[in-house]
């Protein structure tokens, strides 16, 4: 009884939430001229042309590869550095930790319109790259390289914040006991707290991946050549002002969603109820 109503609620919510996405999928299979022509979800004359167009015209494979590289680097860096930093803020109080932490979080409150150009100038001015001299002058730095695209994402302050919040609930007694046993800090982190943090690492991975995958503005200004295009830039090809190509756009958008979905599906397995079962056993 209760189970039935619970499942019904879940199905209903999922359907409502998925509705716009279902329409996207439908349009992806609808010929361009018929886009938004009917209320029916099943296209009258389904076609695969839009997917072909998306792959060929937008060079989607290259873009998917580029975005995958950039996102994977960002995920790895965030899962290591941001998680460690969050742990340090929560468990290893050091001088100036609190103000530094708040300053870090506060940077997220500055609109990107303001920070975009300074960031651009910095990536251009990285010394000894892209024809630059030791002082960062003369060349184009890391502009128009995947390294330049990924650099600002390596450590996202929000992830540090999240990790700190997560570790702040972890029992301190475990660390104290281990210290008495003579364990080093690194061992305490890797052997005791990291295993507890699987859901956290999963969230950081999912969010880092999604954030990098979705960003449009930074790749737009920092890359120019076709070789460095990311997925959102590839999709923009179908968004010409006043002449949107709905079919290929939706087909591309659906395709581009799939890798993120896979990353999510893989990581969501870490959200297993009862994982924290052993947390107090030490």
């Amino acid at each position: 009884m209760r189970r039935a109503s619970f499942v019904a609620a879940l199905i209903a919510m999922s359907l409502i939430v998925l509705l716009p996405f279902v329409w996207m999928v439908s349009l992806a299979f609808t010929p361009q001229e018929q886009a938004f022509g009917s209320l029916s979800v099943i296209p009258a004359q389904p076609t695969l042309d839009n997917f072909v167009t998306a792959f060929v015209d937008a060079n989607l494979l290259r873009a998917l590869a580029n975005s995958a590289i950039v996102a994977s680097v960002a995920v790895t860096a965030n899962c290591v550095i941001a998680v460690l930093a969050g742990y340090a803020f929560a468990m290893l109080p050091f001088r100036g930790a609190t103000p530094m932490f708040y300053a870090l979080v506060a940077t997220a409150a500055v609109p990107v319109s303001v920070t975009l150009i300074p960031l651009f100038l910095m990536i251009r001015g990285i010394p000894l790259t892209g024809g630059n001299d030791l002082f960062g002058a003369g060349g184009s730095g890391l502009l128009d390289t995947l390294a330049g695209v990924v650099l600002p994402y390596l450590v996202m302050p929000m992830n540090i914040f999240l990790a700190r919040q997560f570790f702040s609930t972890a029992p301190v007694e475990l660390a104290e006991a281990a210290r008495i046993d003579g364990a080093g800090e690194w061992r305490i982190f890797t052997q005791i707290y990291l295993p507890l943090a699987r859901p956290l690492v999963a969230v950081v991975a999912v969010f880092s991946f999604t954030g990098v995958w979705d960003d449009f503005l930074w790749p737009l200004v920092s890359t120019t050549s076709a070789d460095t295009q990311t997925v959102q830039l590839a999709l923009a090809r179908f968004l010409a002002s006043g002449n949107v190509q709905y079919g290929p756009l939706m087909a591309g958008a659906v395709l581009v969603t799939i890798p993120v979905l896979i990353v999510f599906l893989f990581n969501q397995r870490s959200f297993i109820s009862g994982l924290s079962d052993g947390s107090l056993k030490g």
Binding site: L116, I117, F120, L121, R124, S140, L143, L217, L220, V221, T224, S225, A226, A236, R237, L239, A240, S241
Partner: peptide, 25 residues
């Protein structure tokens, strides 16, 4: 010749950064 295709709606943002950084085409 290296050509980059952009919708003119995105052009201002990209040009602003490029002119500020001296990397305009």
């Amino acid at each position: 010749v290296e050509v980059t295709f952009l919708d003119w709606g995105d052009m201002s943002t990209k040009l602003n950064a490029a002119f500020a950084g001296g990397t305009a085409p």
